[in-house]
Amino acid sequence: YIGSKISLISKAEIRYEGILYTIDTENSTVALAKVRSFGTEDRPTDRPIPPRDEVFEYIIFRGSDIKDLTVCE
Rank of each mutant, 00 (worst) to 15 (best):
I2S: 08
G3S: 03
G3H: 00
G3I: 13
G3A: 03
G3N: 04
G3Y: 15
G3Q: 04
G3R: 02
S4W: 10
S4F: 07
S4M: 07
K5Q: 03
I6L: 05
I6S: 00
I6W: 04
I6R: 02
I6D: 06
S7T: 06
L8Q: 00
L8I: 04
L8K: 03
L8Y: 01
L8M: 07
L8C: 00
I9R: 03
I9H: 04
I9Q: 02
S10I: 06
K11D: 11
K11V: 10
K11T: 14
A12S: 15
A12Q: 15
E13F: 06
E13Y: 04
E13M: 15
E13D: 13
I14Y: 04
I14V: 13
I14W: 02
I14D: 02
I14P: 01
R15F: 01
R15M: 02
R15P: 00
R15V: 03
R15D: 00
Y16A: 01
Y16M: 01
E17T: 10
E17N: 03
E17H: 01
E17A: 03
E17Q: 07
G18S: 02
G18F: 01
G18C: 04
I19E: 06
I19A: 02
I19K: 00
I19R: 08
L20I: 06
Y21I: 15
Y21A: 15
Y21H: 09
Y21Q: 15
T22V: 09
T22R: 12
T22I: 05
T22P: 02
T22G: 10
I23Q: 13
D24A: 06
D24M: 05
T25S: 14
T25Q: 15
T25F: 08
T25V: 09
E26P: 09
E26K: 13
E26M: 10
E26N: 07
E26C: 06
N27C: 07
S28I: 15
S28W: 11
S28H: 12
T29L: 09
T29S: 12
T29D: 15
T29Y: 10
T29P: 01
V30I: 10
V30Q: 01
A31M: 05
A31W: 09
A31Y: 12
L32V: 08
L32C: 04
L32T: 03
A33N: 10
A33K: 15
A33S: 14
A33D: 11
A33H: 13
A33G: 08
K34G: 11
K34L: 05
K34E: 13
K34Q: 15
K34S: 10
V35S: 06
V35I: 04
V35R: 03
R36F: 08
R36K: 11
R36T: 08
R36E: 05
R36D: 06
S37C: 08
F38R: 03
F38G: 03
G39C: 01
G39Y: 04
T40C: 02
T40R: 02
T40G: 02
T40Y: 00
T40S: 08
E41G: 06
E41K: 15
E41Q: 10
D42K: 05
R43C: 05
R43A: 02
R43L: 03
P44S: 11
P44E: 12
P44A: 14
T45V: 13
T45D: 01
T45G: 07
D46H: 09
D46V: 11
D46L: 11
R47F: 10
R47P: 07
P48I: 15
P48M: 07
I49Y: 04
I49L: 14
I49R: 14
P50A: 10
P50H: 15
P50K: 06
P50Y: 09
P50M: 09
P50V: 02
P51C: 08
P51Y: 08
R52V: 09
D53N: 08
D53K: 14
D53E: 14
D53G: 11
E54I: 06
E54A: 09
E54W: 04
V55E: 14
V55G: 06
V55W: 07
V55L: 11
E57A: 08
E57Q: 07
E57K: 12
I59W: 05
I59N: 03
I59T: 14
I59G: 05
I60C: 08
I60F: 15
I60P: 10
I60T: 14
F61C: 04
F61Y: 00
R62F: 04
R62W: 04
G63P: 14
G63L: 12
G63D: 15
G63C: 14
G63I: 07
G63M: 12
S64F: 08
S64M: 06
S64I: 12
S64L: 10
D65V: 05
I66L: 06
I66W: 02
I66Q: 00
K67G: 03
D68N: 09
D68Q: 09
D68P: 01
L69S: 06
L69C: 10
L69T: 08
T70V: 09
T70M: 09
T70W: 05
T70G: 13
C72G: 11
C72K: 12
E73W: 00
